[in-house]
Design a protein around this nucleic acid. Structure first.
Length: 311
RNA sequence: GGCUAGGUCGUCCAACGGUAGGGUAGGGGAUUGAAAAUCCCUUAAUUGUGGUUCAAUUCCACACCUUGCCA
């Protein structure tokens, strides 16, 4: 397969199983596109593919980074490209599989991130400014230098506003300019992008609820407790499946309450993922029916790939 | 059965007798260096039947349902 196959979908939609089947069919290897599976811990919480699930198919960008490290899209795009080149140099098909839309789109669109550094002191300064003068004053600050971006941001979205100001502060050009510059060279690769979705939302919700229960049986609490006891995790602290259980460890809430919260947060995350994937019209939707087996889904995926290649 | 306090969006809680409002869930959207994060928008309700009144979620009566206490 000359093209790169991309498998996306909301959490618990069965991406991993599909990617492995496609790897068998197309002589492929899997590259994970997941902001949490990159870390060396949280095996259960991040639903890392187990050796049994991997079925001998090589998986890349899984479990290679210490949770005390921070990570960014720019890092991902770079590492993913290295993996793709490696896989293709060996004559195999690259299959990107994951639910982190930002990572996937940044790679597919070949976004170029220059080496503008982060300035944490500046961020603090801006945050204090916003606390003192209000969010709208902060947004006005941005409007003066980059009205285009200011127009797209709500004043409560302080994090984004500060980032936009930070880019200007550290590089001298606005984030609008940076965005335009980042898109100058299209990707050298061709992609077939498949997005998993369900015929109705309830099917997905049921799968999520069931999967959380499964995770609990497979040691989710141990994962979460390790996170709880190791507070220094810049990116990894956000993982769903860990932070929701902290109130239980602190004795503030019952386990049942925390598990319900965890399921809720997972459902909401899945909804956000669907919104992200819907936006990109290149995504070919693969609708999973309530009674579809893995073999049915694989067949639908192969059909999508064939019809896409025929065009 | 008696007493008691209630019945308002799916759920939790508001509304001097005068436009039924908010939290949360659900739905939709945004997304360029922390993205499993962050932010925005939004659907949706007065238990029923009478009565008082220009006007009833609000006052009165009855019915039904629920809390708690007593039997």
């Amino acid at each position: 397969m000359n093209k790169i196959i991309v498998v996306t979908g909301p959490t618990a939609s069965g991406k991993t199983a599909l990617a492995v089947e496609l790897a068998k069919i197309y002589n492929g290897e899997v590259i994970s596109a997941d902001s949490m599976q990159i870390y060396t811990d949280m095996d259960v919480a991040s639903a890392k593919p187990t050796p049994e699930e991997q079925q001998g198919i090589p998986h890349h960008l899984v479990g290679f980074l210490d949770p005390s490290e921070s990570f960014s899209v720019a890092d991902y795009v770079k590492l993913c490209d290295e993996c793709v080149q490696d896989i293709r140099s060996r004559g195999k098909t690259a299959i990107i599989c994951g639910g982190t839309g930002l990572y996937i789109n940044s790679f597919v669109d070949n976004l170029e991130f220059d080496d503008s550094k982060q300035d944490f002191a500046f961020r603090d300064e801006m945050r204090k400014f916003a606390e003192k003068h209000g969010n709208s004053a902060l947004l006005e600050k941005l409007r003066e230098i980059d009205p285009q971006t200011a127009e797209t941001l709500h004043e409560n979205n302080v994090g984004r506003i500060i980032r936009a100001l930070e880019v200007y502060h550290t590089t001298g050009h606005t984030i609008s300019q940076a965005k335009a510059m980042s898109r100058q060279i299209p990707s050298p690769y061709e992609f077939i992008m498949i997005t998993l979705d369900f015929d109705n939302r309830e099917t997905l919700h049921n799968r999520i609820n069931r999967r959380v229960d499964e995770m609990l049986k497979h040691g989710l609490l141990d994962d979460a407790r390790k996170c709880f006891e190791q507070p220094n995790r810049p990116t990894a602290a956000q993982a769903i499946g860990c932070k929701e259980l902290y109130p239980y460890f602190r004795g503030e809430k019952s386990l049942e309450e925390c598990v319900e919260e965890l399921k809720l947060r997972t459902r909401q995350y899945a909804k956000r993922q669907l919104t992200w994937f819907r936006r990109d019209k290149r995504n070919l939707r693969l609708i999973i029916g309530e009674n579809d087996e893995l073999s049915d889904i694989v067949k639908k995926a192969v059909d999508l790939i064939n019809s896409s290649n025929a065009v």
